[in-house]
Amino acid sequence: MIGTFVEAVPSLPPRRAEAAARPRAVVRLARAAPPYLYLAPGLVLLVVWTYWPLAQTFFLSFHSWNLVPSTPMTQVGTDNYERLLTTSALGSSTVRTFQVIAGLLPFTLLIPLGVGLLTRGRGTVHRGLVFAPMLVAPVAGATVWMFLLDPDAGLVNTVLGTDVNWLNGTGTALWAIVLITGWHLAGFAVLVVAAGLAGIDPEYTAAARVDGATSSQITRWITLPLLSPTLWFLVLMTVLLGAQWTFPLIDTLTQGGPAGSSTTVYYLLWEYGFRSNDAGLAAAAGVLFFAGFMLVAVPLARLADRAAVREEGP
């Protein structure tokens, strides 16, 4: 017998002849081992590629190093942090990151919510269309949008009758990135809202209608509260996914420019690490960013998680 499924491991070992013959400790170890063995590959990978590197980043942030294995690291105390806090790059890129997230919310929250409420229970035909951009690789998306936003021959300028150099203007580059990311994610968010709305028991709205509630009252007091787990999830997704999607777009379209106007924190870290080969500075920025990121993401994750539990019920 290898272990007990589902039920807690019983405190008494089975009284079998061969079990009694072997030393008790070995038997207990053999009985406890299987779950750990199955978990081992995944957990080892997590530790090697995520958690230990996190600790190393912290360590690295107090050193100066150019990423070349043959040159030694030198300890520099809190120099890297002082350098970071005296330049404005980290602060302004953080502000830009928040601008990106705020700019994405209309695409990932407001439009999906509006569309969802307006088209409740219909539009399965359109699902296939709106979801497609989520499957287009970010670099391919970047390419086609670069083509559409081309200052001389792009469709956007033709339609709007303008001649704006969207991706090369300090005032527009970041918003162009937001628009492209929004295009990738909006359809997905629409379907998530639709799934959330479909999960609401129609009995609630029917009961409210019997009691004489108007449509807008039902939306405000019944539908939206019941939908709130989905909405929190979308906010969390915007924060976590938005950054992942903007990175390849920034790297292919603007490289953080012009004049740093589209450098988000994610891109700044990449630049510090691999453009200026300043590992210590990049690590210090990473540590500060990670701390700030946790302050935003953990409460959001808790909200989404708690709401989801409530939704599933007992």
Partner: peptide, 30 residues
């Protein structure tokens, strides 16, 4: 399929990876 010591910790370790952006760990990874 099992209940075992450290179950919750393992679960948290998996969930926690979402809170660690690649850009924070990329230098040690590299």
């Amino acid at each position: 399929a099992w209940r075992f010591r450290g179950h919750r910790v393992a679960h948290l370790l998996f969930v926690g990876t979402w809170l660690v952006p690649f850009q924070v760990t990329m230098l040690p990874n590299y």
